[in-house]
Amino acid sequence: MPLQLVAITLDCPDPLALAAFYQRATGLELHPRSDADFAGLEGEHGLVIGFQRVDDYQAPSWPGQDQPQQLHLCFRIGDEDLDEVETRLREFGAGKPDHQPHGDRARVLTDPVGHPFCISVG
C-alpha cells in the first residue's frame, strides 16, 4: 500500500505572513480556505505546503540543535543564477546562516521565522 504525500506543514507564529513569503518565493497559489490559524499553498500534483499557528513558537537553531530544525525544505532553481536567487529571497525576508556546507552548488537560507531551507542549481 503506497502512501501519497499530500501536505507538508510548518509551525510558525503567523501562518498568513509565512505563506506570503513562500508564495513570493515559489509562485504557488494560496489555498482559498487559508486563515489566521492555518494557511496553505497549493503545489504540484496536489501537494500542499501548510503553515500552522503555534503559540510561543521558537525558531530552529540551525546548524545547532538547541532548538531542532524538525524539517528542512529543499528547492531546485534550475539553471538560474544562485547568487541572484539568493538575493531575491533575502529581499523577501530570508536570512543566511554563516554555516554553508554545500559549496557553490547550493545555499542554506532561513525563512522569516527561522526554518532552514536549501536552494540548489541543476
Score class of each variant (00 low, 15 high):
Ala106Pro: 10
Ala59Asn: 02
Asp79Trp: 07
Gln67Phe: 10
Pro32Trp: 07
Val85Gly: 01
Phe92Val: 01
Tyr22Asn: 03
Ala36Asp: 06
Phe38Met: 04
Gly95Asn: 08
Gln58Ala: 14
Asp55Ala: 15
Gly122Glu: 06
Cys12Ala: 03
Pro60Thr: 10
Glu84Lys: 13
Asp111Phe: 05
Leu109Ser: 15
Asp104Thr: 14
His31Gly: 08
Leu28Gln: 11
Val48Pro: 00
Arg24Ile: 01
His72Thr: 13
Val113Asp: 13
Pro101His: 03
Val113Trp: 13
Cys12Val: 02
Arg107Asn: 05
Ser120Arg: 03
Ser120Phe: 14
Ser61Phe: 03
Cys74Pro: 00
Pro13Asp: 07
Pro68Cys: 06
Glu29Arg: 08
Pro63Trp: 10
Val54Ile: 11
Pro2Ala: 12
Pro13Gly: 11
Pro63Gly: 02
Asp37Met: 08
Leu71Val: 11
Pro60Phe: 15
Glu42Ile: 13
Leu47Ser: 08
Asp66Asn: 08
Arg53His: 12
Phe51His: 11
Gln58Ser: 12
Gly103Ala: 00
Gly50Cys: 09
Leu109Gln: 03
Pro97Lys: 04
Pro63Phe: 05
Trp62Leu: 12
Pro13Trp: 01
Ala25Val: 10
Pro32Glu: 15
His72Ala: 02
Leu10His: 14
Gly122His: 04
Pro32Val: 07
Pro112Phe: 08
Thr9Val: 08
His115Asn: 15
Asp79Lys: 14
Gln69Met: 10
Ala7Lys: 12
Gly46Cys: 04
Asp66Phe: 09
Phe75Thr: 06
Leu41Lys: 06
Asp83Phe: 11
Asp98Arg: 10
His102Pro: 02
Thr26Arg: 11
Met1Ile: 13
Ala94Glu: 06
Phe21Trp: 13
Ala106Tyr: 14
Arg107Trp: 04
Glu86Asn: 00
Val54Lys: 05
Ile77Ser: 01
Arg24Asp: 14
Gln23Thr: 09
Phe21Glu: 10
His72Cys: 07
Ile8Met: 12
Ala59Glu: 09
Phe51Ile: 11
Pro97Glu: 06
Gly78Phe: 07
Val54Phe: 02
Leu41Met: 04
